[in-house]
């Protein structure tokens, strides 16, 4: 009954489309792959050069001031980061951090303007919302495949996949935050003769700030989780330890790498949350 149409070759189409993209846009993808890769390597090399003890102290001091001079988070960062160092995973930690940092920054850079566009136009919202849904519900592994096609293996495709996976919360929360600004404040800003950009920068964005920051926090956490998955296509860092532990069925080293990611996640989460205050 259901076989009245032969199987639609969606898989073939998508593959052909991706192949075409890869070739047609090689002039864009290749420089990104090469220069971007070099930049990432350079960044993580620089970070690795800083002695761990100094990094730990700096991070702890920042934590101290971010949390209104309470000592909980500083102590946690010191102990947590030391533990990672103690387990010999410091270099992996730096790689992972670099990936998360760059992926998050790019996500925010792309996400906030798109969110603003969505909040200003119903049409844009109607078009972008389903795309965001698609980006978030498609299993994250799937993005790895075109990422490899476009950018080969390594950090760059990892960041590409994180971008797709991690950008939606920033977009959504920016849109939400701006739409939630009270009507009276928007009216006040219009009534005094603000231009569109005056309204945006003097009223809407400052008012939406805490909502947008909540979105950014989500984005950073998603980027972190994606960076681990991206190790399957050769992105270096803590994720690669987990992947290799999985391949060797080594519970011990898998657990250690896992705990390291948890520590990093908690530190990043608390940092971005406290930035909001």
């Amino acid at each position: 009954m259901l076989d009245f149409i032969a199987q639609i070759p969606i898989a073939v189409w998508v593959k052909e489309f991706t192949d075409w993209l890869t070739e047609a846009f090689a002039f864009i993808f290749d420089p990104i792959k090469n220069q971007g890769g070099d930049f990432l390597d350079w960044t993580s090399d620089m970070l690795v050069l800083i002695p761990p003890i100094i990094v730990i102290i700096i991070v702890a001091v920042i934590a101290f001031f971010l949390t209104d001079k309470r000592i909980g988070l500083p102590i946690f960062t010191i102990v947590g980061l030391w533990l990672i160092y103690n387990q010999g995973l410091w270099e992996e930690l730096v790689f992972t951090f670099t990936l998360v940092l760059i992926a998050s920054l790019l996500s925010i850079l792309i996400g906030i303007p798109v969110g603003i566009l969505m909040s200003k136009s119903k049409t844009a919202e109607a078009i972008i919302t389903p795309i965001l849904d698609f980006m978030q519900t498609m299993p994250a592994f799937v993005y790895l495949i075109p990422a490899v096609a476009f950018f080969g293996i390594g950090m760059v495709p990892g960041i590409f996949a994180s971008l797709i996976f991690a950008t939606p919360p920033t977009v959504r929360f920016t849109n939400l935050g701006i739409r939630q600004v009270s009507r009276e404040l928007v009216e006040a800003s219009d009534a005094f003769g603000s231009t569109g950009s005056q309204k945006l920068f003097k009223v809407e964005l400052p008012m939406a700030k805490s909502t947008i920051m909540a979105g950014i926090n989500q984005t950073v956490m998603l980027a972190l989780s994606m960076v681990v998955i991206a190790s399957m296509i050769g992105a270096p860092g803590l994720g690669r330890e987990i992947v290799s532990a999985l391949q060797n069925a080594n519970v011990g080293s898998g657990f250690v790498a896992g705990i390291s990611i948890v520590i990093l996640a908690i530190i990043i989460d608390r940092f971005t949350q406290n930035l909001n205050k």
């Binding site: 009276e184 009216e187 006040a188 003769g193 603000s194």
Partner: peptide
């Protein structure tokens, strides 16, 4: 319109419409 709003018409709102930040 913007010019007239800036120079000639000011508005006071029911719930004050002050910018909290």
């Amino acid at each position: 319109l913007r010019r007239v709003r800036r120079e000639k018409l000011s508005m006071v709102f029911q719930n004050f419409g002050l910018f909290p930040h």
